[in-house]
Design a binder for these strands. Sequence first.
DNA 1: GCCGTTTTCGGCCCGACTGTTTTCAGTCG
Length: 576
Amino acid sequence: MKNLEIALLLGEIADLLEIKGENQFKIRAYRRASRAVKYLKENIEDLKEKGSLTKIPGVGKGIAAKIEEYLDTGEIKYYTELKKEVHPELLNLIRLPGVGIKTAKIIHEHFPGIDIELLKKYAEEGKIRALPGLGPKTEQNLLRGIDLMYGEREKYSIGIAKTSAEIILDFLNSISEVERAEIAGSVRRGKDLVGDLDLVISAKNYQEVVYYFEKHPHIQRVEKIGDQRFKAATWLGIKVDIEFADEDNFIETLYISTGSEEHIQQVKKLAEGFKGQITKNGIFINGSKIFLEGEKDIFSALGLPYIEPELREGRGEVEAAKKGRLPLLVKLNDIKGDLQVHSTWSDGMNSIEEMVQEAVAMGYSYIAITDHSKSLGIANGLSEKRLMEQWEEIEKLREKYAPFKILRGIEVDILSDGRLDFDEEVLKNLDLVIASIHSGFKQDRETITKRIISALENPYVDIIAHPTGRILGKRPPYDFDFERVLEKAAETNTVLEINASPDRLDLDDEQARAAKEMGIKIAVNTDAHERSCLNDIQYGVITARRAWLQKEDIINCMEPDELLNFLAERKKGAMP
DNA sequence: GCCGTTTTCGGCCCGACTGTTTTCAGTCG
């Protein structure tokens, strides 16, 4: 699949054109095409073969020709030429949050060839604030941005990491010398940000595996480290660490490589009490090696039930296992529907019907259509009038797709003064009201806390979406009092969201666990703006599992009637 | 550069917030 490669290239062409000051609509065309290719379900090479590249929305003759050129020759001449005209460091500068073309050019004009490291140094020395049009605030924001993007030393979202790990796993499994291969490490535990990919393999001939690995198109370089492992990097630059195991210590190696360190330490400590030892060479109790068929045998040797990888963070799972109090974690197929879905009525890429078809194909029983409200102009937010028009379309689709349920919803903006973008007369006629913040991210703690609390107090608000506002690696959460928000959500029986988009995962695992402990219900929603993004639900479920959630904690694990009752009861509670 | 119940040109996403400024430019969602 070259889809992601091409999407990134088109996006970079857009950046380059922007730096050059080209026509903004041309830039937007490349951005739109990039997005469409990124979320394309089909393999783009297949589309090319069928001659239907221009069927991709936003791809016309011009861009199709460039995609074709890339697939045929591995190069886009237009892109190569553009790159010659623009200093590469400018591209890195404009990717920093708060830095656009103008700021990047000012910095670059005064410090030609400046890179991120040097920029950080100059900012710390106060040299940036002296530049024309820039000041101390910009300098501070720059430092914060650099810290956010580079401070966590190249972390990749679980979305990219898991997909990459699965591509590598498939490849390893296709090599006949490989007897067994599994994903380990933080990808297996489902962490939101991942540093590198860990895999464990056993094989008849390791030299052969390394040989094939070097040939894989996704792999940039391979470096052998001793006899037990080799390291590599994918074309995106993600580090891969592959550890060799034998057939008779594969389970032990997989278990320890999965981690986390804290978890393993705690289990090792427990094992000491059994005169036991846990090593990659074997699990020993009273000096004799335990035969393992699977990881569950490791736990049962210590008198514990199986602990799922997502729980292995040393956050009380060993204690809970001892007491027989591990949760029965929610599973992907417990999810019965998606309660935050956008359509072309606001800023989605697909029609309501297309989103419904996708949801039906996934085996769901319902979705809620929750387009943006009017204040979000850039997202083509719905006015009251257009909302009513949307209901007519939903009504027709309800008949066509029954018994599948389509909920009339809205993602209503919490305005900067805490009011909602629609008044209660409108909200009370909706099946589902989601409220969320899209503006005023930099307000002070008290103001933002009050905004969220006043949304929670609104009797018609069912769910608060992406409650902290973070975008992983790009935007920190806004400043607010999470404890107070939890208390109010518990008091008003308002649902909090785990936004399943791998760029958000908001609430995160620990926050969602805190919410559960206060009896707050959770919705796991994708916030899909493209049909294929409904599949992001997997990342939300992984996060829910890391938060110790059971299906009883999650409202979209309810059967349709149960959910409609739940929402109706909330509304009834809302009536004076 | 894309797109069209508008068919080959003309329109396409705009308003709020922030920071640096003295009246507005740049960035973002």
